[in-house]
Nucleic acid binder design. Sequence first.
DNA 1: GTCAGTGCAAACTTTTTGCAACTAC
DNA 2: GTAGTTGCAAAAAGTTTGCACTGAC
Lengths: 162, 162
Amino acid sequence: MSDKTSLQKEVEQRFREFLLAHELRQTRERFAILEAIYSIEGTFTIEHLQDLMQERRFPVSTGTLYATIQLLIQANLLIRHPFNFSSSVFERIADNHPRSYQICNNCHHITRIKSKELANSLETYHPRGFSISHRIVYIYGICPSCQRTIRKQLKLKEQNKL
Amino acid sequence: MSDKTSLQKEVEQRFREFLLAHELRQTRERFAILEAIYSIEGTFTIEHLQDLMQERRFPVSTGTLYATIQLLIQANLLIRHPFNFSSSVFERIADNHPRSYQICNNCHHITRIKSKELANSLETYHPRGFSISHRIVYIYGICPSCQRTIRKQLKLKEQNKL
DNA sequence: GTCAGTGCAAACTTTTTGCAACTAC
DNA sequence: GTAGTTGCAAAAAGTTTGCACTGAC
């Protein structure tokens, strides 16, 4: 287990405050799960996380994992994506800047978009009375490589019909 | 069962073309499910949809429902939201204008945002080579009414401690 | 007539729950 | 010491699959 990064320390502090404010207990499990999640860059599933906990010599039960994830979502330290059908996909959120993703309808590949332009235009919108914790944009469509594949398939089909 | 609206007719046509292009069969079930979905304004779950099919005197099996929903998602006539934990939440998408939602972290209430400003700023972004089918924004935070509730609770807690 | 699509039920996967043991407060 | 939390296993909920039958092409 590596030393804690400044990000690790920051989110630990934020989680600590959240637990305090909600009169919840600061258990080893909760902080170990948080630390594991913040060692993952990008998305993960419950299964992935449970394996990681095992690797890190801190196995936790599924029940605890689900319960802690719910807390971390409430604490704005984690989000759930709408990617998979039958199982959940999660990702840490370190800051409250808008996050954008590009999702291919065909190959289902997910790419994070890092456009300052897009982020800025999102940040200008402030709903009345609603205090924003974070913003997420999903852009669905067909990625360049799938566009090529589909075009080729269409061509082949037409040739066969001729 | 009411007469078909022009929206109903339009999506039916689009689904027909999709099925044709993918060499899939045009079954009564598929069109009945599409029609039922487009009779729902806002979000729904599989369970809700299955009940509705029953009401409309066109009961379909769960398997067919799931299969058809997958097709409709592929055909860009339906989206899946990341709202619930254990079951999926769907919503029809009639056009390709950006859609925005405001979600309260506390009461989990979901509100559709109809801001032209927000929609326009999203439409200005075009990822290179990626052909967009639709865009969805989720704005997470605390809604006005929950903000009041939380403030009250904090006050009460402080008074008890004094 | 052929084979994709459907219904039904069973299987499988994911998430939640109940309870005894544990531990943070 | 008193709850809130955890682990474990069992239950519940959600989704997928296999197979015989049906109906679109």
